[in-house]
Design a protein around this nucleic acid. Structure first.
Length: 252
DNA sequence: TAGGCCATCTGGTCCT
DNA sequence: AGGACCAGATGGCCTA
């Protein structure tokens, strides 16, 4: 949307707005009740304290100053919400969900739920990858080695921005072999581009081929889509069992 | 037309 | 005192 210039927004949806001669606006209800008293108070105040050099208290503000203050506060709040929406857009950009003019934007609640599930999935994948790397290397001291290994550390970074490490490919050849389930994914779960995904869709239960970004073609029989769960055990989201994951919550 | 989603305004509360 | 944050209220837009 637009602007935090303090002028009326592109969606003039504000209730009880009145426009005065100067083109500014107030909350009618608020302004009537507010200014009725304030005006009298300010009138009395200016009569009592004409031209005082001190900063005025709120009770000393006259009608115009109250309006100016209100506009200032509104503008700040608009800016705050715009910043919030900008951050929300940034989050949408890294979500494994199709973006484009023909695709309806994820709602805020959907974005948050999807992000949560995405994080859980990545955490699970990371845990499983650590286990697999541990199996590959075996023995003690694996923790320090895996912690420093690029394949492991890279998993903590959003997958949409990273190619799969060669080690991960070799791990796939170790565990892989089953045909890809992606191509056979049921389309019933695919939301219409014009309708936002439901919360069940956001649970990542079935990948959505048509809405995926460019897949990574690996040497194994699996097709990997950045940021999306793959049918193999390495990439399949696991039931959340760690206490760390249990601490993740959408509640405030 | 109902319901979902959103932007905006507003007043209260907390913090610096 | 001023700003940030929050939640409630309200009305517009869009879709099923």
């Amino acid at each position: 949307m637009d602007s935090d210039t303090g002028s009326i927004g592109s969606r003039s949806s504000s209730p009880d707005l009145v426009v005065d001669d100067a083109g500014s606006f107030f909350s009618n209800k608020m302004f009537q009740t507010y200014c009725k008293d304030r005006e009298e108070a300010a009138q009395a105040m200016t009569e009592r304290c004409p031209g005082g050099g001190k900063a005025k208290t709120r009770s000393e503000l006259n009608k115009d100053e109250v309006q100016e203050l209100r506009l200032k506060v509104n503008s700040r709040e608009r800016k705050r919400m715009h910043d919030l929406n900008q951050a929300m857009d940034g989050l949408r950009e890294v979500m494994p969900y199709a973006q484009g003019p023909s695709v309806r934007k994820l709602s805020k609640i959907s974005t948050l739920l999807l992000a949560r599930n995405y994080i859980l999935m990545l955490s699970s994948s990371l845990e499983e990858m650590k286990k697999l790397v541990g199996d590959v290397y075996g023995g003690a001291g694996i923790q320090s080695r895996t912690a420093a290994h690029p394949a492991v550390t890279a998993a903590a970074v959003p997958a949409a921005h990273l190619p799969l490490h060669p080690l991960a490919q070799s791990l796939h050849s170790l565990v892989g072999g089953a045909p890809s389930a992606l191509s056979a994914a049921p389309t019933a779960a695919i939301p219409s581009p014009r309708s936002p995904p439901t919360t069940s869709f956001l649970g990542f239960h079935s990948p959505v081929p048509g809405l995926l970004k460019e897949p990574l073609h690996l040497t194994s029989s699996y097709r990997h889509f950045p940021g999306m769960p793959c049918p193999c055990s390495l990439c399949q989201p696991l039931p959340t069992t760690t206490s760390t994951l249990h601490n993740l919550s959408m509640t405030k």
